[in-house]
Design a protein around this nucleic acid. Structure first.
Lengths: 107, 107
DNA sequence: TACTAATATAGCCATATGGCTATTTCAATA
DNA sequence: TATTGAAATAGCCATATGGCTATATTAGTA
């Protein structure tokens, strides 16, 4: 996953409410009106959280009648875990540091 | 990992600067004065980032002479990835919803 | 066509965040 | 001891965030 996308996705996950929403969606698709009583926060607040999760492709939505059901994008969640364990190679940065004599080689 | 700790750790990772610091530490231990020219931000800003990473156990520090070297806590990073792929079971929340007749069972 | 229910959007507000400069602390050294 | 260099802390500021209420939008129904 592209580096800044990864940071964005982690940021979206780094809120207890959104993380719990992800855990709930991992069990079962949910609509907004189910999440409201679980969290005890307003409907617009839940909607805003869903919007953030959707923006980083962690959830998808599907309208069913008057409800909008949200599903977890498990692939994206896996990709995040994978990316965390396969962080990009930044040796170029160290080469640059060395070129400028800024590497600290201690002991 | 405890749920709120996980959210805190993800939040710490959810910033491009800190995520890149983690990626850099994955290659090699670094001190603050090496990170400053890499990011082009002030020394106190780097220090603050290191402090946040330390608070969620993603890095450890070791003083060597006048420098403080930071190391990645790979175990913690792995734990985060693992926890993401093994989110807690929140069926109780759905039981509660059902008890209150708030489950939306559509189609 | 109204009316209701679910969801989204707009906009407000208090707090958190990520940058900065100035200053302090701590270790090495002249 | 005085000085220098690295890192941490304090405190400022602009922006982002996560809550809220009010209002729009959309689908189902009387």
């Amino acid at each position: 996953m592209e580096f800044n996308k990864l940071a964005d996705a982690l940021k979206a996950l780094g809120d207890p409410t959104r993380l719990k929403i992800i855990a709930l969606l991992n069990m079962r698709d949910c609509c907004v009106c189910e999440l409201v009583p679980i969290f005890g926060i307003s409907q617009p607040s839940i909607s805003k959280h869903m919007s953030r999760l959707k923006n980083v492709d962690l959830v998808t939505e599907k309208r069913k009648g008057q409800w909008v059901f949200y599903s977890l994008n498990r692939q994206q969640l896996e990709d995040i875990g994978f990316s965390l364990n396969h962080l990009p190679d930044f040796s170029l940065e160290f080469n640059e540091l060395e070129k400028q004599g800024l590497l600290v080689t201690c002991e």
